[in-house]
Measured scan of single mutants.
Amino acid sequence: TDVTFHVNGRNLHLKGADEELLRRIEELIRRGADIEELEKAVKEWEK
């Protein structure tokens, strides 16, 4: 799945995201995470 999140005026584009990653990103956004936290979560998922 390709999806782009718009967070605090910045874009986080995910290519090939699975349901697990999407749920994790949505949860972080609900908690008020900043873009750096979201990018870190994506990097951890990519490993």
Rank of each mutant, 00 (worst) to 15 (best):
L12Y: 11
E39C: 08
E39G: 05
I29M: 06
H6G: 02
W45Y: 13
E36A: 07
E37A: 10
K40P: 01
D34Y: 07
K47D: 10
L12M: 05
E36C: 06
W45I: 03
H13F: 11
R24S: 08
E39S: 06
V3L: 08
G16W: 06
A17G: 04
L38C: 10
R30H: 09
E37Q: 10
N8V: 01
A17I: 09
L12A: 00
E44L: 14
L14P: 00
E27A: 14
G9R: 01
G32E: 04
D34H: 07
L22I: 15
E37V: 10
R10V: 14
G16Y: 06
A33S: 08
V7D: 03
L38S: 00
E19K: 13
L14W: 01
L38H: 00
H6C: 15
N11M: 15
E46K: 14
V3G: 03
N8D: 07
E26I: 15
D18I: 02
K43D: 10
E26T: 14
E20W: 15
A17M: 03
R24A: 08
F5C: 13
I25H: 00
E27M: 15
E20R: 13
K40G: 10
E19Y: 12
V42I: 10
I35C: 02
D18W: 01
W45P: 02
G32N: 05
L21D: 01
L12I: 07
R10F: 14
R30S: 10
V3M: 09
R10K: 13
L12W: 14
K40T: 11
K40R: 12
E39K: 07
R23G: 07
E37R: 10
N11P: 15
N11D: 14
R23T: 08
E39Y: 13
D34F: 08
R31K: 10
A41M: 09
V3H: 14
L21C: 04
E19T: 13
R31A: 09
E46R: 14
N8C: 12
I29R: 02
E20A: 14
I35P: 01
V3E: 04
D18P: 14
I25D: 00
E46Q: 13
L14Y: 01
T1P: 08
I29V: 06
F5V: 14
E37Y: 08
I25K: 00
D2N: 06
E39W: 13
D18E: 07
K40N: 11
V7W: 04
H13N: 05
N11G: 04
D18V: 06
E46I: 13
